[in-house]
Amino acid sequence: MACCVDGLDDTNEGRKPVTTTSAEPTRRDFLYIATASVGAVGVAAALVPLIAAMNPDASTIAAGAPIEVDLGPIAEGQVIKVFWRGKPIFVSHRTKKEIEEARSVNLASLPDPQPDDKRVKEGKPQWQVLIGICTHLGCIPIAHSGQYNGYFCPCHGSVYDTSGRIRSGPAPTNLPLPPYEFVSDSKIRIG
């Protein structure tokens, strides 16, 4: 059988070969590429809703609306904790001594150099508002503790000063500031 088929092929010169080589693209090549392209676009389009559905939903975003905090009851030297977007926000009424300590630091010696007056609103050095989440792995630091009498994170030992700047430990950056503004002299809006 095999020999006969071979013989048949040999004698059939001029007949079209069964498969084409690279010379001419065929309709099948076109179909392969077109199908694969449409399929790839389909997969990419399907990924968009799948990934987006895991991002914060509308109710979570709505619950993250700005909040107002009355500063009146916060005594000098007191740090209060409020929640915005599920994050603890420290509102610190700093004493003269704490401001002094924060401003007398040699900036070059800091891991994340930032002057204290850039971390408070102008003319309000006594009010400091920080996101109270350790920049290492997200624990909540404890106020009025640690070597610099600022904040100390119990999880992995990061130490922040009275301006919330990282001084020692594994945290890479200073405690971040939330977006906020003074609505009046004794009220702020966070968010």
Binding site: I51, N55, P56, D57, T60, G64, R85, G86
Partner: peptide, 17 residues
């Protein structure tokens, strides 16, 4: 991290996923 949490912090969406 926000995507993993499904929020701005660990919360109910995180627990459900």
């Amino acid at each position: 991290v926000t995507w993993l949490w499904g929020g701005y912090s660990v919360g109910n969406p995180t627990l459900q996923r």
